[in-house]
Design a protein around this nucleic acid. Structure first.
Length: 634
RNA sequence: GCUCAAGUAGCUCAGCAGGUAGAGCACCUCCUUGGUAAGGAGGAGGUCAUCGGUUCGAGUCCGAUCUUGAGCUCCA
């Protein structure tokens, strides 16, 4: 009898007796064996010492793959739990999964972990990793597992066990004196974990439910080499430099003021200029794409919000009512009811559809104080909102056009990587199941037709319709949701929206609620972080700073300024009585894309010397030549 | 909202066994008129988040409130 193992490249290795993935790796190359973390046998993740007894396909994962990292970090979280239990025996362990970047483990104890304790734990982890403790898998019955964790007094593990069917086989992993309930797989031994860093602590509710006890969470990360850890820590430092809150302060773009109120943004002149440029571009593009721009009020009567349903399903996000001559008015958390009202202001014909109503609409939502975050999460923000009202026949082409429009617009701002999600019907939802089917399929068809890769978020749609979300990938890998394309089966019915078809009969239109940038605030923040504050020329609030060498060139500098302004460039003259090096440094720190240096030589020759931000001197040239250079970049 | 941490000059931060508040940068004035990332001198600027308490005396200790940060939960 021989066992044939098919490798990912299609080649087959044969063995005469049962074999472990580690041995197969060893036979391919010792380096692979050393780097391997787990194996996938016929698509099932297993430990490297799992015995293969029959023909199968085999794939080995190293730290390079997602699964490899996940297992590596998961094993490290066990190591951390072991260290914590050794140092603080009275602490109870709960759960400790791998996350996107690293891992965490939640512990139950009275006080949070201090920085000193963190260092202590880290030290113990390093000590334990050097012991090369083997992660031993054991399979047992539920009753046996309950017995073990009961003796250990690990109540949380018992709670998890209680939810597992009695007949299931339970697995535990033990390294040294530490045993944990775990499905696995895991690393072979703790020695594989070479570089460890515990990053931060925080509170976390047991099972993520705020009614439960607050546990103490420790976040950490680990790598197979010190070098990789160093690189990661450097990456974190770079991320901090790109934080839009820091850039916003450094570049004087916006502020949030205590007295004005948390989550309410003040746009300073430079930030406002960038926003103006974004919005102008947005409006132009929407007009080109057949949208009609509208403006709507910031408040509306209670009855409007009753009709729309917001007072029913969105009330906890709305500010309390204000009294106007005995009537309740609410500040708007969304723009849609107003757009619906515009639609309903006339009897509509199918000839008018699709009707695309767009607005940069400022909305106010109550956000719990703990969730506010710079411009990413605020209480007053402007959505680049639009509602597309169309006939069922127009649905596909509208969705398709919309996706293309959204991606084109995001690309224009420099973004290159996108994550696309299709969210389907949740358990609790309104609308005809047939409509859900039609709408979801329309979304899916469009994505497929455009050849876009997407993930399905099953049951992740809004209660009123399925949606497509596009998230932008940051230069440092973080994803931020911008575009959302949502079907709405709720409001057309609630507002009794209709159109007269060619058959002279009233029909209910389809309605798509969409935002491409999402909110101007969040988009602005993402844009800033993505470019690290070095905005492309067309978005720079000041595109060019004119720097006279001495005060003698002030007049010449002003003349250059005038000519540049005439040509539509945003420029300023640094008139301060400072040396050129000082002014250059200042313009560099302000991340102004270009500098125009004018001294005696330039004035005599009627030229300018151009300098590009972060690049340096571009040499002397005529103003025309300089303009041409700038024109090409804009 | 919850847990923990923090709030000192416009910015970045120091200060403490409780004894009249400090630096650098930025700002203002003067000197310097200079060639691509900081020339020099001087000056002004703070009810140490707010309110209350302990104390002869509080930026420093205690409490409450507000705000910020890291998370949890929730979302554009």
């Amino acid at each position: 009898m021989s066992i044939n193992i098919t490798l990912p490249d299609g080649s087959v290795k044969s063995y005469e007796s049962p074999v472990k993935p580690l041995q197969v790796a060893q036979d391919i190359s010792p380096r692979l064996a050393d780097a391997s973390i787990l194996a996938e046998v016929d698509g099932v993740a297993v430990d490297l010492d799992h015995e293969i007894v029959q023909d199968c396909s085999l794939m080995l994962h190293t730290f390079k793959t997602e699964q490899g990292k996940e297992v590596y970090w998961h094993s490290t979280s066990h190591l951390m739990a072991q260290a914590v239990k050794q140092l603080f025996p009275s602490v109870k362990v709960t759960i400790g999964p791998a996350i996107e970047q690293g891992f965490y483990y939640d512990f139950d104890r009275d006080t949070p972990f201090t920085d000193e304790e963190l260092a202590q734990i880290e030290e113990r982890m390093v000590f334990l990793s050097k012991q090369n403790l083997v992660y031993q898998r054991k399979e047992l019955s539920k009753a046996e597992a309950v017995e073990i964790f009961k003796n250990m007094g690990e109540d949380y593990k018992l709670e998890i066990l209680a939810e597992i069917p009695d007949t299931d086989v339970i697995s535990t992993y033990q390294q040294g004196d530490f045993i944990d309930l775990c499905r696995g797989p895991h690393l072979l031994d703790t020695g594989k974990i070479k570089a460890i860093k515990l990053l931060k602590t925080s509170g976390a509710y047991w099972r993520g439910d705020e009614k439960n006890k607050m546990l103490h969470r420790i976040y950490g990360i680990s790598f197979p080499s010190k070098k990789e850890l160093e690189e990661y820590l450097e990456f974190l430092r770079q991320a901090a430099l790109r934080d839009h809150r820091k850039l916003g302060k450094d570049l004087d773009l916006f502020s949030i003021n205590d007295e004005v109120g948390p989550g309410l943004v003040l746009w300073h002149p430079n930030g406002a200029m960038i926003r103006h440029l974004i919005e102008s571009y947005w409006k132009e593009e929407h007009l080109k794409h057949g949208y009609k721009l509208v403006y709507t009020p910031h408040v509306g009567r209670a009855s409007l919000w009753e009709t729309s349903g917001h007072l029913g399903f969105y009330k906890e996000n709305m500010y309390s009512a204000m009294d106007v001559e005995g009537q309740d008015y609410y500040i708007k958390p969304m723009n849609c009811p107003f757009h619906m009202a515009i639609y309903n202001s006339n009897l509509r014909s199918y000839r008018e559809l699709p009707l695309r109503l767009g607005e940069l609409g400022t909305v106010y939502r109550y956000e719990r104080s703990g969730v506010l975050h710079g411009l990413m999460r605020v209480r007053g923000f402007t959505q680049d909102d639009a509602h597309i009202i169309c006939t069922p026949e127009q649905l596909d082409s509208e969705v398709e056009k919309l996706i293309v429009f959204a991606l084109d617009m995001l690309k224009h701002f420099g973004f290159k990587e996108f994550l696309i999600y299709l969210s389907t019907q949740p358990d609790a939802s309104v609308g005809d199941p047939k409509d859900w089917e039609v709408a979801t399929e329309s979304l899916r068809r469009s994505l497929e037709k455009l050849g876009l890769a997407y993930d399905v978020d099953k049951g992740g749609g809004a209660f009123y319709g399925p949606k497509i979300d596009i998230k932008i990938k940051d230069a440092i890998g973080r994803a931020w949701q911008c575009t959302t394309i949502q079907f709405d089966f709720n409001e057309p019915t609630r507002f009794n929206m209709t159109y007269i078809g060619s058959d002279n009969v009233q029909h209910r239109p389809y309605m798509i609620h969409r935002a491409i940038l999402g909110s101007v605030e969040r988009f602005f923040a993402t844009l800033l972080e993505y470019h690290g504050g070095n905005l492309p020329l067309w978005l720079a609030p000041v595109q060019l700073m004119i720097l006279p060498i001495t005060e003698a060139q002030l007049d010449y500098a002003r003349k250059i300024e005038e000519q540049l302004q005439m040509r539509g460039f945003r420029c300023e003259v640094d008139t301060r009585n400072e040396k050129i090096g000082y002014k250059v440094r200042d313009a560099e720190l302000k991340k102004i894309p270009y500098m125009c240096i004018v001294g005696k030589k330039e004035e005599e020759n009627g030229t300018v010397t151009l300098r590009e931000h972060t690049v340096g001197d571009l040499g002397s040239m005529s103003l025309e030549a300089a303009l041409e250079k700038l024109g090409l970049k804009s």
